[in-house]
């Protein structure tokens, strides 16, 4: 079996894998990082979204071997220790989750939206950008609110970091 190695949430990870192992399987089964979920088999629900080299990717639609040498960020690595990421805080504050299953993918997508579209997001932009993430519980109302708030809070983060 070929070997794959990558950096996941800042830590080196290496394993021999069956070539058909998907990145999400590698994360969940080899590394036991079960926060990344699988909700469909047609690359549409977005429960599996992680960041690969800083960009949101559906980890159910990427081979683990393709991610060789990549830096992966999963929901487990988003907080800074006990300090939640502003987007995580925004989801909790705005009741943007119910059963929690789609939440990791939503949050990882939300952070990626902010990286691409900035900190002042209009409602219609957020709704369009969530095309690849399905939630069955919330009706998206509070997710949209949370992403707007989280985006604004992330600009605070940047300022804070710059000041430090």
């Amino acid at each position: 079996m070929p070997t794959v190695s990558m950096k996941v949430n800042g830590k080196d990870a290496k394993a021999d894998v069956d070539p058909r192992t998907l990145l999400v399987q590698f994360l969940r089964e080899n590394l036991r990082l079960t926060g990344t979920h699988v909700g469909c088999d047609t690359s549409q629900c977005g429960a599996c979204v992680v960041h690969v080299n800083g960009k949101a990717v559906k980890s159910c639609t990427m081979l683990a071997l393709t991610a060789d040498g990549a830096e992966i960020l999963t929901i487990e690595g988003l907080a800074n220790g006990a300090q939640l990421h502003p987007m995580q805080e925004a989801f909790r504050e705005n009741h943007a989750l119910q059963c929690g299953f789609c939440t990791p993918g939503m949050i990882m997508t939300a952070v990626d939206i902010v990286h691409r579209k900035g900190n002042n997001l209009e409602e219609h932009t957020i709704r369009e950008e969530l095309e690849g993430n399905i939630c069955r519980c919330t009706g998206y109302h509070n997710i949209v609110k949370a992403i707007g708030a989280g985006a604004r809070a992330m600009s605070g983060e940047v300022t804070k970091q710059a000041a430090e």
Binding site: T34, R92, H95
Partner: peptide, 21 residues
């Protein structure tokens, strides 16, 4: 009141059936 259960879900620490091995 903000939900007590959210912390585990927003940090990827929920335990759904498939997460149990």
């Amino acid at each position: 009141v903000r939900r007590k259960e959210d912390l585990r879900f927003i940090t990827g620490k929920g335990q759904y059936t498939d997460d149990v091995s």
